[in-house]
Nucleic acid binder design. Structure first.
Lengths: 119, 119, 119, 119
DNA sequence: GTGGTCTAGACCACA
DNA sequence: GTGGTCTAGACCACA
């Protein structure tokens, strides 16, 4: 379910965080569903449990999962992370479109991308 | 001409790279113009010369400047970096707009951003 | 009678302890009244009996309940826990008000909170 | 400057976080002053650098310090953490005063504490 | 079994 | 020298 790219410059825990957050946002992992345990995921990915732990801590901190001591980690309701995720995405889009304008990329080119993706 | 933000999480060499590349793209530093010397810039910014060196190496690698041994660094023609820069910007825009769609952000919201920035 | 909030970061036994102690302090569970049995409460809350046991042990230790072997757990007289509970609460209030003063929060702001809660 | 209490139930990284944040809030460590390096503090306290690292990460996350790669950690301006710290302190005060009222502690007793501390 | 903390030690990027 | 990441391995609290 998760692939780690060792050529990727980002740290492993961040890659895992990103992959899992996508699985949650897209609804493949559903609210209140149990996440794989830290240990199991560590074994599956042949990665140290501490590293998984760190990814899970990040997910919890950003409202994607909640931890029940002695029981495990569970997926949060959409409401607890969706607003943040949207806000950050909008900010990135704004930054890159500004960059595009500075590079005198045509407005039409951007608009075409929007149309194509939202078709 | 360049401000370093020590609160910024990016490494210093990356900030310098980014700032200088903007000065070049916007034409404030013009083609074949001489760049400040590594040593002078290091003194001006109170920064380790190695760090400036690294930023310049990145600029050279990405086609923004060229080095003449014993003379210094000079700004390249736009043609040598603009295509790459545009391509990468377009890719990022595409990625983030796809992400926006997956988060069910309205198409209209993205279009408004485009209009606002290109007004 | 008791809701467990799995999003709460505190361990489950502590939540149960806290909820039950409130029921006792507020007089909803009265002196010498029988507490629900460990087993029943465990079933009601779909929780491991060890966890309930642990909450009860804490309640006993702090003078909220007493155990009669073979019979069950019973609520203590107010005298046996109230003094401790008050003392600890006063200490916490003192600590946090000192902290507030160090942060130069206005005396008036604290006084308003007191008035509002005691109205 | 910092004492660790091994009987304290809180994890070491949290104790260090708390002690350092107090030093910052009280102005003993001033804005833009350099923090002790992770390694040095680790040696001073005879504690693993990873643990110090974690305390520093928490301090950064909550706006007490900022990190410059390759240079070290520096104290932030008051504005970047004071609002949060105040808000949290007010919340705690509110919770404990409510608890006091439920224990039928006299309003006068609380008011006396306020007066005494703010005299 | 489940997550959380900590140590010892290595290696890397950055300045 | 400075912080950041990762591993291997231990031990603890909680359910």
């Amino acid at each position: 379910m998760i692939n780690i790219d060792y050529r990727d410059k980002r740290p492993i825990y961040e890659q895992i965080y990103e992959k899992l957050s996508v699985l949650i946002v897209t609804g493949i992992l559903k609210a209140d569903e149990k996440m794989p345990s830290v240990r199991n995921l560590a074994i599956d990915l042949s990665i140290n449990p501490n590293t998984i732990q760190r990814a899970y801590a990040l997910l919890e901190q950003n409202g994607y999962i909640y931890t029940v001591k002695g029981r495990g980690n569970y997926v949060c309701e959409k409401s607890s992370y969706l607003a943040d995720e949207k806000r950050e995405t909008i900010t990135e889009i704004r930054n890159y479109i500004e960059k595009a304008r500075n590079l005198s990329i045509d407005k039409a080119e951007i608009e075409n991308i929007v149309l194509e993706i939202y078709k």
